[in-house]
Design a protein around this nucleic acid. Sequence first.
DNA 1: TAAAAAGTGTATAACGTACTACACGGATTC
DNA 2: GAATCCGTGTAGTACGTTATACACTTTTTA
Lengths: 348, 348
Amino acid sequence: MSRSSVTKRPTIVDVAAHAGVSTAAASKVLRGAYGVSPEMKAKVQASMKALGYRPLASARGMRGRTYTVAVVVADLHNEFSSLLVEGIRRECERQKYRLLVAPAGSGKDAQDRMVEDLIDRAMDGIVLISPLGTDAELEELAKKIPVVVLGRHGASPEFDSVAADDFAGANLVVDHLVSLGHRQITYVNHTTTGTNDARLPEEVRVRGYVDAMIRHGLGDAIDIIQSQWSQEGGEESGRLILSRKERPTAVFAGCDVAAFGVLTALWNAGIRVPDEISVAGFDNIFTTSLAPISMTTVDQSGLNMGSTAGRLLLERVGGRAEAVNSSVLPVLVPRGTSAAPLLEVGKG
Amino acid sequence: MSRSSVTKRPTIVDVAAHAGVSTAAASKVLRGAYGVSPEMKAKVQASMKALGYRPLASARGMRGRTYTVAVVVADLHNEFSSLLVEGIRRECERQKYRLLVAPAGSGKDAQDRMVEDLIDRAMDGIVLISPLGTDAELEELAKKIPVVVLGRHGASPEFDSVAADDFAGANLVVDHLVSLGHRQITYVNHTTTGTNDARLPEEVRVRGYVDAMIRHGLGDAIDIIQSQWSQEGGEESGRLILSRKERPTAVFAGCDVAAFGVLTALWNAGIRVPDEISVAGFDNIFTTSLAPISMTTVDQSGLNMGSTAGRLLLERVGGRAEAVNSSVLPVLVPRGTSAAPLLEVGKG
DNA sequence: TAAAAAGTGTATAACGTACTACACGGATTC
DNA sequence: GAATCCGTGTAGTACGTTATACACTTTTTA
């Protein structure tokens, strides 16, 4: 039994004994709580260091905080999500919290299950990226645990939210294409089965497209393809466009990944971009900037949105009660896939 | 005080009371432990359902398992990591475990800190993706918690590992380029500062390149650029190559992202690929398959590697003691960025 | 100078679950 | 017919930490 120092992890009781104080005192020092003298603090911290003490989050979680927050994400493959996550992570790191990423998979059920599991695992708070479900459901959730909703529109007095102004972003793209001379602009939309939540980014973006078209007097040219925001969805949309007699001069996909799919379909068919058809996306994921792609898109600064979300969440964890709803203004990133159309296909 | 049912989450004590049995019995049912009759099992499970009981992982973690494992990843932006993670996730889901992704940031310190934090958070096991550090360190870690090392070479009797045969993969690329007629093949290497671990993928790949060149009698043409496997590192390497008097006819970057950087530099300089210079990467990340890029690379089936790692980890958690070291054979994915060189720059 | 307040430390009861020991009845073994 | 074993259930403690309640000093206030 002489291997006690090797075999067991030191606890706060060990620390207190080593420092010659009560465990309550040691706990206070650990938490930075009120009621410790500078000498006590120094003494206990020295003992913690000497023993290599590390608090056990499971045990802390039963009475207080775990100093752990999570971000629920449907899919890690989405580069934009990665940016958001990185933003949250940096803010958490700054405040000595740990961020864990929870890949839920797609669908509302999967997301809900993950959220429950995270509550079971005593997270101090959670960030939800473009969650499905109603405001009421999210508000119910917010009663149980601090919540920040990222990338979903609509303010709530019950939980914090951070979203880009997708309406303005879609406007930027249409304005850009119209200013280049385009009039036939097709939009590739994302349709979620079942849910039809006006607060999801996809719904706001398509409204932004419609609004801008009407504003430019192009209401008759409005053309929306109902698809999925994935590589495959984009390719199908591209093929659909090519199968038509009258092709648009520009395609605006509401998401970069879908725009890649459109590009792929066009390239495969030998259509030159932007000479024959211009293409624009949304999100400014990293790949859009690669030289051979160089795609026109909209940047919503995922890094900033993420760190804002992180800050809001930790404020909530710290006790703030009033909701904060933050909005970020996106900017257009014009690149090589958009240019003036070769021949005007105007009407009238 | 009439809101007791609303205000508090049910515990296993509540379940036991509701079912009219002891908490020990309820716990047995929950864990599926030995010593419960079918009637008891049914009764307790009915009570759990009726109360909406959910076990608290923090509390479980203090005595037994949390049914949670984590994968430590330096950077979520790496598409290949995402593939690995997805593979692990699927296997965990199959076995009713939860996978959380721990973004550590780059560098050994950051990684080590994250691992400690995960142990503090009572993970049942962890997967490390291409970890830095020595075998001894990893073995020390494996004594504390079940560990599977992913994407790092070298078998150990102390922990499980899953790796692609990077040596063979690099051979495939060189063989391919040589068979097309290339003789001047430059390799873009990744040099980690400080560490020089022969078991890291980058070290094995560069050895594979050197070996294949010698095997083809091209020992004198060996040309290695010390760089970083990032977009920037690739671009710098590309510019370096262009600044030379004698340019290679092919560039092999040990990582797709770096290969993108090389492509970017070449495109910016107006060099036609593959007409003037062929380019090949490694990993077969999704973007390589996009039509305008269509890059030759090597696929190591991240999904399979991930699910294998997940399976091994959960076996370890379940009690297996002997180490399992698994290796995956990669395959060449020839695409549009590699072709026969226009003019032979042979020697002698 | 007495009373109140502020500062500093301690004892100890939770928190929710797991699991070792053990008790009890019935079936099996010798 | 006693001894053993097996199946099933329970009591109660341990896990590591937090936080409430309180005791004792010292400082401030009236």
